[in-house]
Amino acid sequence: MRGLTHRIVLVVAVLVVPACTAPVKPVPGKPVAPVMMFVGDSFTVGSGPVPRWESYASQTARLLGWQPIIAGAGGTGYCNEGRAGRTFQRSFEVELAWRPAPDVLVISGGHNDRRWSPVQVRQAAEGLLAKVRAHWPGTRTVMIGPIWLGEAPSRAYGVRDALAEAAKAGKVPFFDPMRERWPQGAILPDGVHPTLAGHESIAGWLAARLA
């Protein structure tokens, strides 16, 4: 009986070890989709009835045929740590920086930074852009300003302008959602966050600019 058990163990070892040690090879001729990463707030990661895989970030990647990796948390911003206890820069450091460089990085937000001065917001944004550039010098980076699907409060414009200045100084494209007119039915009953249709509209808008 012991001899039989010994032989069974040897057979299992022969079958299992090569499967664990053999390198994974790409499928010949299969194209590798570009990778796009996002850092953002609840608009980017999803909120309410809209999960992460249906957020505008995921939908933008699907429209372009790219692979999305989404980082961030609701309530966060360039200065605002929110309940997650981290800014966009910290989200970049702990969720993205250890990964291989993507083809595109989208930094989206500012909605939650209205309690800070435009100077503070601009400095925080410039610091994040400098860190990204130093870490991933070959990655294309774009910034999206605060997303307001309805009428924005006056302080939101100061944040928007500060981020536009930071993007210009960092020589990265800046996309301004506050200049757009969004369709009816784009906002949830909370008056802030997008419905699924709202996320679809944002995704179509962003994909057209990234394409």
Rank of each mutant, 00 (worst) to 15 (best):
V27S: 04
T87K: 12
A97R: 06
T5W: 15
L4M: 14
A13Q: 01
A19F: 08
V50Y: 05
F38D: 01
L105Q: 05
P146A: 03
L105F: 04
P34E: 03
E54P: 01
P194W: 09
R62I: 01
R2G: 03
I147T: 15
A124Y: 02
D176R: 11
A211N: 15
H135K: 15
V159F: 08
S58D: 01
R160A: 06
P183L: 13
L128E: 11
I144V: 14
P49Q: 11
T139R: 11
S91N: 15
E54K: 08
M37N: 11
Y78S: 10
A152V: 01
A164C: 00
P51E: 07
I202E: 05
M143P: 00
I69G: 06
A156W: 07
F175P: 07
F43T: 00
R90P: 08
D103G: 07
G145C: 02
P183S: 13
A167S: 00
Q89M: 09
L206G: 08
R86D: 11
I107P: 02
R7G: 05
I144S: 02
W205F: 12
V14P: 03
M1D: 15
W136N: 06
L10T: 12
H6S: 15
L196T: 09
V27A: 10
R179K: 14
A134M: 12
V9T: 04
P153N: 10
P28S: 05
L206T: 06
M1L: 15
L128Y: 08
V32D: 03
W136R: 12
V119C: 03
V192H: 02
A125C: 15
R52M: 09
G40P: 09
R181V: 14
E180Q: 15
A167D: 03
G150W: 04
V17L: 14
T195C: 14
S154D: 04
V94T: 12
Q120F: 10
P177L: 01
K25G: 10
T139N: 06
K171E: 11
R90G: 06
Q67W: 03
L206N: 13
R114P: 02
R160Y: 11
L188R: 07
L128T: 09
S117E: 03
F175N: 05
A71W: 10
